[in-house]
């Protein structure tokens, strides 16, 4: 049995689990390629026009492997944490795929609730049953996959020469190099330190969102908003670069929440869609970095003319 796993959406975070689980069950795993132009074009072709870019790209990934596998894993991740969701589009993902792409093989339709092991195992059991009838084997594969997942860590934390920015946004935008046009490498090349929301603990973000009137019901809203506020309060960052996909409903809320909380702290919001040009993005990132540099070096610091002469700075 060949299991197809599209390399889109939360694959970047949970690939270890899914790959270990199905390989322990003894099935052949077919993973789609890294996102590239063909995949994106296919996604744009099949997916409904109004959807956001990551969902379109996911459609492309699914379409690229659908003929090579017998069973397609389309994770309908309802929630990761208790009483929290990811996004309505995640809840209806299998339906979107089935009804938009012609001739798809069998698809995993069961919902995934990751907040507790029992609920999560339900999904694994139903997906595993498609491969083997041996329930002990499924249980064993589940346990070892869980162990492997625990060891794997996503997230970027890199010290910079002078500046550190928080790279905020959904993980499937940050870790897909094609989608964000290699922004991580671009920042690295400029010697800018990067930190993502994974390096702020869950308890800290939970504490932070208590300031809000209403408890957030999206996991990434709590994580990203909380992390941005915590990092800012601890003065660990000099700026925020928010990678957002066009028409992302959740980002439209998070960005504004962050804006209200950070005041005049610098934040660059980059909207990504299938038409985004790389040159435009480079210019904006460069301008933002230049601004950050001047802010850190010059703001609230008025060097005397003598100092300027010695350090070679422009006194104006």
């Amino acid at each position: 049995m060949r299991i197809g796993i599209p390399k889109g959406l939360l694959y970047c975070r949970y690939h270890t689990f899914f790959e270990t689980f199905f390989s322990k069950l003894g099935s052949e795993i077919i993973v789609s390629e890294q996102t590239n132009k063909d995949i994106m074009d296919m996604g744009v072709e099949f997916c409904v026009d109004e959807a956001c870019l990551p969902v379109k790209v996911f459609h492309g990934h699914a379409a690229s492997i659908k003929d090579r596998c017998d069973y397609l894993i389309i994770p309908r991740i309802m929630s990761i944490c208790k009483k929290e969701y990811i996004c309505p589009k995640f809840c209806g993902l299998p339906e979107m795929i089935i009804h938009s792409i012609p001739h798809v093989p069998k698809v995993s339709m069961e919902p995934i609730y990751m907040q507790n092991e029992k609920e999560f195992f339900k999904w694994c059991f139903s997906a595993g049953s498609a491969v083997t009838k041996n329930s002990a084997k499924i249980k064993k594969a589940f346990i070892s996959a869980k162990k492997a997942q625990k060891k794997s860590r996503t997230g970027i934390i890199e010290p910079g020469q002078k500046l550190t920015v928080m790279l905020a946004g959904h993980p499937y935008v940050i870790f897909d190099e094609y989608l964000n046009m290699g922004i991580v490498n671009k920042l690295r090349a400029k010697g800018i330190g990067i930190i993502t929301e994974e390096f702020v603990s869950d308890s800290e973000t939970c504490e932070e969102v208590k300031k809000l009137v209403k408890k957030p019901f999206w996991t990434f809203q709590r994580r990203i908003f909380g992390a941005a506020c915590v990092l800012l309060r601890h003065k660990r960052i000099d700026g925020i670069i928010y990678l957002s996909s066009f028409a992302c409903g959740i980002d439209s809320v998070i960005i504004d929440l962050i804006r209200y909380c950070i005041g005049h702290f610098p934040m660059l919001v980059i909207k990504l869609d299938e038409h985004t040009g790389e040159a435009g993005m480079d210019t904006r990132v460069e301008a933002f970095i230049d601004m950050l540099e001047r802010r850190v070096l010059n703001e609230n610091y008025n060097p005397s003319p003598w100092e300027c002469v010695f350090s070679g700075q422009n006194p104006v």
Binding site: C47, V48, E50, A51, C87, P88, K89, C91, G92, E95, M96, H99, S100, G249
Partner: peptide, 9 residues
Amino acid sequence: MPEIVSKSI
């Protein structure tokens, strides 16, 4: 978001 899903169905 929900209606995008229903539009695709």
